[in-house]
């Protein structure tokens, strides 16, 4: 079996979603299997039309910071989160959505981009993935 990486995507901040997806795609590119477990604010980024809408974790300044960073990223030729996510799926990455978050935050399966989600699960699913992973991150 291939080496594996599991990341809990807890934050919905723009910069942290970038970190999670870049690490995930790097791991897939180097031949690892990757599971992303989306929970809390992270899961809300999987709602339809919400992926690119996260604030910056620092210096967001009511969205001005987020817009500034996005324009700097564009200049530096950094790809969009949408592109990173579609690469992630193309390379065989797995997405797990936290059911409890859906319940707490009143997110219905219909609100989420179900075409991207491989599995709906709880902590047991995460532990099952994490215990066989060489890289385990919480972002």
């Amino acid at each position: 079996m291939n080496d594996k990486a599991t990341i809990i995507v807890h934050s919905g901040d723009l910069d942290k979603i970038y970190s999670a997806l870049i690490v995930a795609n790097g791991a897939l590119s180097m031949g690892m299997e990757v599971s992303l477990y989306f929970t809390f604010w992270g899961l809300s980024r999987l709602k339809k039309g919400e992926l690119e809408k996260g604030p910056l974790s620092r210096m967001n300044m009511m969205g001005i910071g987020s817009r500034m960073v996005k324009s700097r990223m564009k200049k530096a030729n950094v790809v969009s989160l949408e592109r990173l996510l579609s690469d992630f799926k193309e390379l065989g990455g797995k997405i797990i959505a936290c059911e409890m978050t859906m319940e707490i935050m009143g997110i219905k399966a219909d609100d989420l981009r179900s075409d991207l989600i491989d599995e709906y699960g709880a902590v047991g699913t995460y532990i099952q993935e994490a215990k066989e992973s060489k890289i385990n991150l919480f972002i």
């Binding site: 795609n25 897939l28 590119s29 180097m30 030729n77 950094v78 790809v79 990173l84 193309e90 390379l91």
Partner: peptide
């Protein structure tokens, strides 16, 4: 050419797959 992290690595992997 001109692409930055992680695109060169990811595109290489896609092609190899």
């Amino acid at each position: 050419t001109g692409e930055t992290c992680p695109v060169p690595l990811v595109e290489t992997r896609k092609a190899l797959r």
